[in-house]
Structures are given as structure tokens and as C-alpha cells.
Amino acid sequence: MSSLVKDITPPSSGAPMVKAEGVHKSFGLAHILKGIDLEVLPREVFCLIGPSGSGKSTFLRCINHLEKISAGRLYVDGQLVGYRQHGDKLYELKEKEVAAQRRDIGMVFQRFNLFPHMTALENVMEAPVQVKGESKAVARERAQRLLDRVGLGDRTGHYPAQLSGGQQQRVAIARALAMQPKLMLFDEPTSALDPELVGEVLDVMRDLAEDGMTMIVVTHEMGFAREVGDSLVFMDDGVVVESGHPRDVLTNPQHDRTKSFLSKVL
């Protein structure tokens, strides 16, 4: 069986893939992230859980600079996200440089966000051709391989509207993988799916984890977190309340807030 990721970009060093130091984020007066500190190691499956509105999506979006952080430092593979530091001054990166940073970070959304005017194959080919300037032949070959691997080799000519939710999400994962990212962000990838379709998407993510992809997964699937996750963080109200190995946190939570959250979702 071929692997989902042929050639994962190797991390530059043994250093963490993602490092957050005192990350704050405000929208106007609303203080959403209140000092997040965490490290995600290469090849790790890092799960993020927490109640609705706790800032999980916001934090994920900060990692690829879809949101600008208000304070603190955020590094991906040792590089500051969205800024360049000279002495003690920070300079905003230009649009092109931000785009270049995002190439290496794949993102999968709750609502898939496939391009509806393109077929499954075109969706997967789009970024390699348009962003990396790959030839169509090369991009098509890889797109076909990725779609085969997520079990959609026979659906390449279908438009998103002609695919089920689970199939759309698998195309979305293939689309992100086509850029050969070193890090994958998943924002509740199965929350918009009918229960019987959740499994097919989790299976693809499990394969990806086995291939050694570094993944940050915001999820309500505690079973997946326990089984596949290497670390787990419980967030509430913009802070990390508790973290550790998923088995420990899920079966033996230390904090009251974690306990009450888990009692509701388990």
C-alpha cells in the first residue's frame, strides 16, 4: 500500500514543529486567546479539545496567519509566523511571504470549502499548479494518486455538489496534501458530517498519522483522540487548562473544568 504522503518535508531540526509562547488574540475588545503556551513535536498528532467558543479555531487560524496574533510569539518549524524579527523589532511579512509560509501548512475545514466550480481532480491540482508552478501533468498525476489513496479514485471528475459530505472532506484532505505540507491543521473535520460518514474521514486521518504527518486536530471525536493522539490539550476561555497524553487527560482529568466538559461529551 502506497503511503498518503510520499515525501513529508523533513523538519529542519529536532525542534518543535509548532511553538506558541504567550499567544494572545483579541477581536476589538473581545479577548479570545489569553496566553497560549504549547509545543507540537514533529510527527506528533496533537489534539485540541474544549467547549464551543473557547478559541480553538482562532488558535488554529493563527498558526497559518489567517488571523494576526495580538501578543506573544508563534513559530512553525522554527520560523516566526507572519513576521520577521530584526533585533527587538518585528516587521510584518509581505503578502507573498505570508503566502509562502502557508504553502507548507495544510488546513482542513469543518465545512470542507472545496472549490465548487472545479472537479475533485481540479480542486487537488489547483494549488500545486497555481502556487508552486508545477506542470499540469505532474500535478494531475499526484492528484490522481492522492484521490486514489483517500478512496476516491473513481470520483475525480465529480463536482463537489455531486459528492457526499464525507467524500468532499476526503477531497479536501487530498487538496491540502497536494502541497506536500509539513504540518496539517484540522478544524473539526467531521463535525459537519452525518454519523455514518465520520468513520471514512477518520480512517484517512489515521493513515496520515501512521505515515508520520504532524497534525493538529481540533475535534470532538474523543475516541479518535484517545486512539491516535499523542498529546491532548483541553482549552477553555482562551487558556490551556490541562494537557498531557490523551489517555491520561481523558480518563483521569485533574481540573474541575476538564471533568465537567468531559462528562458532557463522553
Partner: peptide, 23 residues
């Protein structure tokens, strides 16, 4: 056009101009 389309394009490393033209 849904905002998620812009987000998805940006997340793939497309610039604003590319996003506008292609998506």
C-alpha cells in the same frame, strides 16, 4: 461568494490576486 472560499485559497498559499482570479 462564501468567505470560506477565500480562507481555503489563502490556506493553500494563494495570494489575494490569484484567489480573486481563480476562485
Amino acid at each position: 461568494v462564501d468567505e470560506g472560499q477565500t480562507e481555503a485559497s489563502h490556506a493553500l498559499g494563494m495570494t489575494q490576486g490569484k484567489t480573486l482570479r481563480r476562485v
